[in-house]
Simulated scan of single mutants.
Amino acid sequence: MSPARALTASLPAGSLPAASLPAASLSTASPGSGEALHVAVVSDAWYPQVNGVVRTLATTAEQLNRMGHRVTFVTPDRFRTVPCPTYPEIRLALFPDRRVTELLDAAHPCAIHIATEGPLGYAARRYCLARGLPFTTAYHTKFPEYLQARAGIPLSWTYRMMRRFHAPSSGVMVATASLRRELEAQGFPNLRDWTRGVDVGLFHPRPSILDLPRPILMYVGRVAVEKNIGAFLALDHPGTKVVVGDGPQRTELMRQHGDVVFVGAKSGEELAAHYASADVFVFPSRTDTFGLVLIEALASGVPVAAYPVPGPLDVIADSGAGVLDEDLGRAVAGALRIDREVARARGLHFTWARCAEMFVDNLQPFDGAVGQRQAA
């Protein structure tokens, strides 16, 4: 398989339609020009991982294809990898620089977006800097807080590393205004807004599939320490707590909380049906940058209970679709009184089409031939 074909093949079959526009015809496109772009997206997070980063990138790419743009992915499935310590399902590329260079040279993109700060992200960053090519990045994950929670690494150390990574970026895309303010205070430059969307055709109110004592309090997402799920499971509240998802902390939490229903990871219609079966969606995380699960729950007609932190603050705002409180139990009690139609209305506010439009507006296109001439 040729490098160019390998790139487009990195997306699961059927996820994105094949683009027919040749790269040479795309080299002078720019955001807002009405012309098609050929965007290379480099990400250390990709299938079979199930998380917000992967869903955001894949769905944004689908929208970009519908808009007439072409998206090429550089992802771990094209490299020799090793499992990430403590997260074996996350694969880290080994010595990726040469292969990244081959793939990007073959693709001839007219814009490069680096989605993650992992081995592939660093290799793509070096590629762009060596050729004087502009690129954009995104701040998907609060790694400083994540590493502090898991390994006790001081926030200042990791923020210094993250600032250095993003400093040359033409635009650092962030999902919420709260996160933007936090990063501005940490000295991050060139911040750009990039919201998220929800498939309102999939996630919508429907009859419950769960025959459990009410109210049903539900968490959906990765079952890991940085998600702070223990704060939810420790609540003394009538009804049933349900956890939808999998992860490294699941066995431990199942052992500690025998009264909680763990249903494992779900997807598609089955996931949507579980959302709609809840009476309240409980989001205990303090480290997410957005929380796609929040708007999936809202679109399903389920009010939200969460802490007043970035992500929930921006998603709920003054909509009345959820209750944010430092006392999570009090937030749950308040959310139970919210009309489900109010939650659904807030979910309809977020669209993937708008997400894709903002992504394009944030890109920094260049002549696709420039990098090849400079590398020669």
Rank of each mutant, 00 (worst) to 15 (best):
M358A: 05
A265F: 14
R337S: 15
L324H: 11
G371M: 13
V261C: 10
L328D: 05
E269K: 13
S285P: 10
K266T: 11
M358K: 12
D361C: 12
G268D: 07
K266Y: 12
R346E: 00
A306Y: 10
G368V: 07
A333H: 15
P365E: 07
L363K: 09
F262C: 06
D314W: 10
H274D: 07
V323F: 02
S285Q: 08
V360D: 11
A333I: 15
P303H: 09
D339C: 02
D339I: 11
M358Q: 14
R337A: 14
G329P: 00
R255V: 08
N362C: 00
G258N: 01
V260E: 08
L271H: 00
P310S: 03
V280C: 02
D259A: 08
A276R: 09
V304Y: 08
R286L: 12
A353E: 15
F281M: 13
G258W: 06
T289A: 10
T287D: 02
V323D: 06
Y275P: 05
E326G: 13
S319D: 00
E270M: 06
I338Q: 01
D259I: 05
V309Y: 05
D361A: 15
A306Q: 14
A331F: 01
Q372A: 15
V315I: 04
H274E: 07
W352K: 04
A306R: 12
V263M: 06
G371I: 12
V280I: 06
V315H: 00
V304Q: 09
V309H: 14
M358C: 05
R354I: 01
G291E: 09
G320I: 01
L298P: 08
K266R: 15
W352F: 11
H274S: 09
S285V: 10
E296K: 06
S285H: 13
D367A: 10
G268Q: 09
S267F: 07
L271S: 03
N362Q: 08
I295A: 03
A273G: 06
A321H: 05
V302A: 02
V293Y: 10
V323K: 04
V370P: 04
G301E: 14
A305F: 03
G301R: 14
V360Y: 11
H349C: 02
G322C: 07
F290E: 00
R337L: 15
A333V: 13
V261H: 14
R346M: 00
P308R: 08
Y307E: 06
T351H: 14
T351S: 15
L336S: 08
